[in-house]
């Protein structure tokens, strides 16, 4: 993927750029909002990673201006302030995701991956499949090896998020946000508990394990490699 990172803290930018490169992405780094804006108009990127506080032009204005010019490249905002209002402002300006500093780079990478490969909105997916695990989004039914699995509505949503991100790591916080709409960090093992419940339904009774835990990061659903 071709990523543009607009971040004024050189240290963080350098580290993130290194991380993206190691993960196999091509990354351009800029430190100024205006430059970022100009660069976006010249080059087609897959994902923009934009800091909220930037010299020249702040991140919010930059993305607003980009959206106004018809640019639809997915944007993930980085910010030091984490109030709900700030998040809402970020999303309203045209951001697709929002990450509060400090963050683990793996978290940023997971989110960038999820955003960059988001299927185009025109294709309506009604059926998700990973190995012999099937999810019928219309009938709201999950099957594995032809056997119907009974899921609670929230478990269904959890599985859906994991299957849509097949092969990619979905972080704990991504799950909290997308499945439970929690935008704060619970102190108990909410995600772990629900994952373990889901696992007991979709993996335990079967030979091959599809739902994998990624150390210190999150979860990934894929056929064992």
């Amino acid at each position: 993927m071709h990523i543009l990172l607009v971040e004024d803290d050189l240290e963080s930018a350098k580290y993130a750029a290194k991380g993206f490169t190691e993960a196999g992405h091509v990354v351009d780094v800029l430190h100024d909002g205006k430059e970022g804006m100009v660069q976006c108009l010249q080059t087609e990127y897959d994902v923009l990673v934009v800091d909220r506080m930037l010299p020249g032009m702040d991140g919010l204005s930059m993305v607003k201006a980009l959206r106004a010019s018809g640019n639809k490249t997915p944007v993930i905002f980085l910010t030091a302030v984490s109030g709900v209002d700030d998040r809402v402002a970020g999303l309203e300006a045209g951001g697709d995701d929002y990450l509060t500093k400090p963050f683990a780079f793996s978290e940023l990478l997971a989110r960038v991956n999820a955003l960059g490969r988001r299927p185009s909105a025109t294709v309506e997916v009604t059926n998700l499949q990973v190995g012999d695990l099937e999810l019928d989004l219309l009938q709201r039914v999950a099957r594995r090896a032809g056997v119907e699995i009974e899921l609670q509505p929230r478990e269904f949503l959890l599985l859906e998020v994991l299957m849509r991100n097949e092969g990619r790591v979905v972080s704990r916080t991504m799950l909290l946000e997308q499945v439970w709409d929690f935008h704060f960090d619970p102190k108990t093992s909410v995600v772990e508990t629900h994952i373990s419940r889901l696992r007991s339904k979709i993996d335990k009774p079967f030979d091959t394990q599809l739902l994998h835990t990624v150390r210190n990061l999150g979860y990934s659903l894929h056929i064992p490699r």
Binding site: D9, S12, Y15, A16, A80, K101, P102, F103
Partner: peptide, 9 residues
């Protein structure tokens, strides 16, 4: 937060 972020990184 910036130094905290660097520390984390």
């Amino acid at each position: 937060k910036t130094p905290l972020n660097r520390l984390h990184i």
